[in-house]
């Protein structure tokens, strides 16, 4: 089974039915899979804080949400995470493409990569780092944990996890 399909299977099995996405090359396959599933309402957003607003509303409407985005978005969403998601105590799994790690071809991506874990740590956001494909075996438990504790939870997925950048 492809890793994209496995990830989305875990989301569906945990009743996640409202997913907002901001595109990323590494996450393209997951986003396609999310879009294809009838169990999931997929709503692309223009910016990640907007997406977190949509997810907050969807959760209050009875749906389990998730956001799929790049780690650069942590810089965009600190205020929203603190004053909306955390302040009102809402669950939000964040499946994050961890750009700027080993095998990264674009130097600028490293500039946010070096801040990513520090920012998440500063925000007291539970953070999991998928480096090898088998790390995704924990996704089911991470999703259950997220909706148990009503917190935003970060799942960082790096280039090695996705099998590198091909011939780039």
């Amino acid at each position: 089974m492809s890793i994209d399909k496995k990830i989305v299977d875990d989301l569906v099995a945990n009743d996640v039915s409202f997913i907002t996405t901001v595109p990323c090359k590494q996450l393209a396959g997951v986003i396609d899979e999310v879009d294809a599933r009838p169990e999931i309402f997929h709503i692309p957003s223009n910016k990640e804080d907007e997406g977190m607003g949509l997810c907050a509303g969807a959760w209050m409407g009875g749906k389990r949400p998730a956001i799929i985005m790049q780690n650069t978005a942590i810089g965009v969403t600190i205020n929203t995470l603190a004053t909306l998601t955390q302040y009102y105590r809402m669950p939000l799994p964040m499946l994050i493409s961890y750009r700027g790690e080993l095998r990264e071809p674009v130097a600028c991506q490293v500039e946010m990569a070096v801040h990513t874990k520090a920012l998440l740590n500063q925000m007291n956001i539970p953070t999991y780092h998928f480096h090898k494909e088998s790390d995704a075996d924990e996704l089911d438990a991470i999703l259950k944990y997220t909706f148990m504790c009503n917190k935003p939870v970060a799942i960082l997925t790096d280039a090695s996890f996705w099998g590198g950048y091909g011939d780039q």
């Binding site: 977190m52 949509l54 969807a58 209050m60 409407g61 749906k63």
Partner: peptide, 11 residues
């Protein structure tokens, strides 16, 4: 607008 819209889409 985003929170309200997410809520409207969910129920």
């Amino acid at each position: 607008s985003s929170i309200g819209f997410g809520l409207a889409l969910a129920q």
